[in-house]
Design a protein around this nucleic acid. Sequence first.
DNA 1: TCGTACATAGTCTATTTAGACTGTTAGAGT
DNA 2: ACTCTAACAGTCTAAATAGACTATGTACGA
Lengths: 190, 190
Amino acid sequence: MPRRTLDNPIVLAVLGLLLEQASHPYQMLAELRQRSDSHAAAVTRGTLYNTVAALNEAGWVAVQGQQRSGNRPERTVYALTEAGREELVRRLDSQIRNPEREFTRFLGAVTYLGALGPDGAVEALTERAQRLRERTAADEERLASARAAGAPRLFVIEAEYALCLARAETAWIDSVVDDIRTGALTWPAV
Amino acid sequence: MPRRTLDNPIVLAVLGLLLEQASHPYQMLAELRQRSDSHAAAVTRGTLYNTVAALNEAGWVAVQGQQRSGNRPERTVYALTEAGREELVRRLDSQIRNPEREFTRFLGAVTYLGALGPDGAVEALTERAQRLRERTAADEERLASARAAGAPRLFVIEAEYALCLARAETAWIDSVVDDIRTGALTWPAV
DNA sequence: TCGTACATAGTCTATTTAGACTGTTAGAGT
DNA sequence: ACTCTAACAGTCTAAATAGACTATGTACGA
């Protein structure tokens, strides 16, 4: 039951991976998981196989061959086609040009921050900031060691972006917590 | 065919709206659209009706009554239950405490920025920054006039957050564009 | 050497979702 | 008075997704 619209966010990831090298779906998944938690979280197996099949029907990828090691299930290896390379560039360009308004979990929650009350809000926000800081430190370290190991900056650019946003978010949370504590942000009387 | 897991992002929005006042799905949708583009984009009608039905089965909302104006379809008005209020707070708290790694379109695209080549990347990034700036200016104005009209800051806090992130992203893009132009960020030879 | 846990590959189905479809009413323009 | 469009309110279905299920191979400790 292949899809028609093919506008799900992992299409780009699949095309991008195949630009580097031909691969089979299971391997793509492993690659995505290894590279980034956010990429990994965005895919499940069913979706990936389905997406690759649809990409195949759309002519953006093509079966390069079958492989098999031992008696394991046969692996179908896909490669990017020329049309696929063009589509990749087209989508890349458009997704960068158009800033979409993305609805993240945190944005959705912050909208109703009031329901936690001032104390609950400070509590929760403080913990988030704390966790963000820990994660940021770990990410910075990973980034630094990747660079030290010789990875070109272009290959880790999305980690830089993610770090930048995480720092901005942390700073914002800090300022909000501060404003609640000092009374610059108050709860309207109910 | 009501759902079981109820972990989709608009659950929180529905519970949050109902905390303010009882409402029927169509009205919730209008409210969401009016309040924020990101909220609006995150919902379609089918999903909303389905979600509300599931919320009802879970006991977090309850039918408050039917309304009808003229010969229009009957509107089923839902109200938050006490269990629903608790669930709202629980989810709010957890979604704020746990920073999830969210996979946005832009993050996915930036990962394969290399495929655009230095010139294409500068082109696309510059346009994004430009659009972001325009949108940010418009959002700032809307925020200011909402405040001027007497909206408590707590009620527009998510707009502040979104603005903060947008500014950080713009600054990051500017710096990357700069680095490409000056040669601080180069394309590895293929 | 046997069991047990985990990695490898992939398929399959029950939920979930997007968005087309239905029909009514209010208001604008002619 | 009459048409045309947009808002109202909801249902329905085809497509997309998550995650369980299958089945072999490998590594490790008991």
